[in-house]
Design a protein around this nucleic acid. Structure first.
Lengths: 339, 339
DNA sequence: AACGCTAATCTAAACGTTTCGATCATGTCA
DNA sequence: TGACATGATCGAAACGTTTAGATTAGCGTT
């Protein structure tokens, strides 16, 4: 900018005024300055600007896995929304690891992001502390957090799983396997509650050996499914509480020589873009990814626009059961339902 | 930092020296300073640091679509690599749009990223200009670019498609539909060349009506497949040059009342994580995503480490044909091959 | 005791902006 | 014509760091 000012024989203040339109500058000088900018190929240094202004027009976004189609879609929507608003997005993947997450959030805050969207991992205590003394607005995505009282957008997970399990029960299933992630994050906790509630409402017993804990990855779904199917009294249906794990479930079913839905019914949380193309077409609980991403972005953009003091807003969205052909009616009921 | 210095009754220079370990500071002062840092909860302002140092320890990454599993995987790998190296990653999705891409690259350069990894879109001319006068190292990913002479890591696309089409030909297919994206980007161009080369090598004629151009999205694959299958002389196999479009192809096959592989064989570029679980199990050309991501990251990290003057390095990786069950042998050959 | 050497610490300039308040020319009005 | 408002422009401080070079203190040599 200094060079531009010199070339145009004006002060840097005038150049700044012209660029930002913060003051009127005469047509004559405007022209000289614009010419100089072109000649020199001047580009404003956003870092210097950020330092002075105290805002970077950049937000931080952390998700557990970017390879999980649910997060991929949400990230994509969020990215577009902030793009439109002239913000850059710094993306971090925490890989479901608490320390990684803490490091990354610190990294983002060091870089003075103006706001944060976090699909958190693990215990909220550290997150709470970080968020408290960082002075930026935070939106919790997908996963809320007891101690952290801030904007959030989450699914009504309990209800969604309740509906899915009830659907299986209505098909005649009695022993329904349930594969979940560690329940220290709210969606896993709530989904599990939905499972229990549905069985309870139907007057069915809860077989604890049918509730299996994995670590969100395909391999975990595989291992847990293997164990369940190897038992003498195997379930007739399996519900997987997340998307990568259901792939493991399907592989285990195949490897053990069974087939879906003939021998065993399968449903899972989170829809796949291709779930109605390949066989079996998985019955899933679809999250409104577009809405989730947009709402999260809007909540944060609203705070960034200055609305700092409004009380925390919690948005609870509804999932939708996408019934396809991966679940079979069972026994007597089968006749009436499949008719 | 000023507050810390005051609280510890030292100068800011000493605080800086301690934090960065750039000079020895006495145990006594060290302790006072560390105490002050804790008391105040001081965090170094990375923006101010960047301004002074001329480096942001942040890189920019642009991809056409983050929802395409290929890019998702690569982004994930790259993200991890830079994470390890203490860099942040700014992610942008250009949505295959040239203007969006230009805007985003400018946005990234404004923010003084230290380097750029670009899976480019469209004509390279503007990209070249931007890259030339921005003074940061650039690595081209997946798509090279005539005028832009810089580090790059790409697949040997021509060879990969040649192998896939040859495989189909060996199965007995003679009319092989080919659905591609616009060929102004190198992979589409090269893949097409592989298609033509394979037919040519087998002495087969090239039916131009079987070569269809889409815009990378599912809907394009759907439309083009619909048209091909509605013709009186439909192909016995279809190869889709990208991943989202093949989903459209599969949907079209289903909607038109045919089935794969019984009525029509299908193969495509880019592997899916779930492609060997659901039916039909797609035969695909798998890219070594891990290697691609790592190599791209390494190339850039090497430049960032100071190796600025080395001549541009072009890495050409090999694809791998993953043969599954979505392609059927045809006619007489069928017997011998399937035996 | 004067000197030089080393280690520890500090002062102040610099990075590239924005912005407040000052300056200056111009035109208007009484 | 003098006073004054207006509009355009500028000078300089500030944002929070890093760092070159200055300063100081301590200590061993001669």
């Amino acid at each position: 900018m200094l060079h531009v000012a010199e070339a145009a024989r004006v002060s840097v203040a005038t150049v700044s005024a012209l660029i930002n339109g913060t003051a009127t500058v005469s047509p004559e000088l405007s022209q000289r300055i614009e010419q100089a900018i072109r000649d020199i190929g001047y580009k404003r240094n956003a870092i210097a600007r950020s330092l002075k202004m105290g805002t970077t027009r950049t937000i931080g976004l952390t998700v557990p896995h970017i390879t999980n189609p649910f997060f991929t879609d949400v990230v994509s929507v969020i990215q577009q929304a902030f793009d439109r608003a002239g913000y850059a997005v710094m993306l971090c993947c925490t890989d479901e690891d608490l320390n990684t997450q803490d490091d990354q959030i610190r990294l983002l805050l060091d870089r003075m992001v103006d706001g944060l969207i976090v699909a958190r991992v693990g215990d909220g205590a550290i997150l709470k502390r970080i968020v408290d003394d960082a002075n930026v607005p935070v939106v919790l995505l997908d996963r809320i957090c007891k101690g952290v009282d801030t904007d959030a957008v989450v699914l009504d997970n309990q209800r969604a799983v309740f509906d899915a399990i009830t659907y299986l029960i209505n098909l005649g299933h009695r022993r329904i396997g349930y594969i979940t992630g560690t329940s220290d994050i709210s969606p896993m906790h709530d989904r599990m509650a939905g499972y229990r509630e549905a069985l309870h409402a139907a007057g069915l017993p809860i077989a604890e050996e049918l509730i299996r804990f994995g670590n969100f990855h395909e391999i975990d779904g595989y291992n847990e499914t293997m164990q369940m199917l190897s038992s003498h009294d195997r379930p007739s249906a399996i519900f997987s509480a997340n998307n990568p794990m259901v792939i493991g479930t399907m592989k285990a079913i195949r490897d053990i020589g069974l087939s879906c839905p003939e021998d065993i019914s399968v449903a899972c949380f989170d829809d796949f873009p291709w779930s109605d193309v390949f066989q079996p077409q998985l019955t899933t609980v679809a999250q409104p990814v577009q809405a989730i991403g947009e709402q999260a972005a809007n909540l944060l953009l609203d705070r960034l626009a200055g609305n700092r003091d409004a009380p925390p807003r919690k948005l609870l969205l509804k999932g939708r059961l996408m019934i396809r052909n991966s679940c079979r009616p069972l026994g007597a009921i089968a006749q009436s339902v499949s008719a």
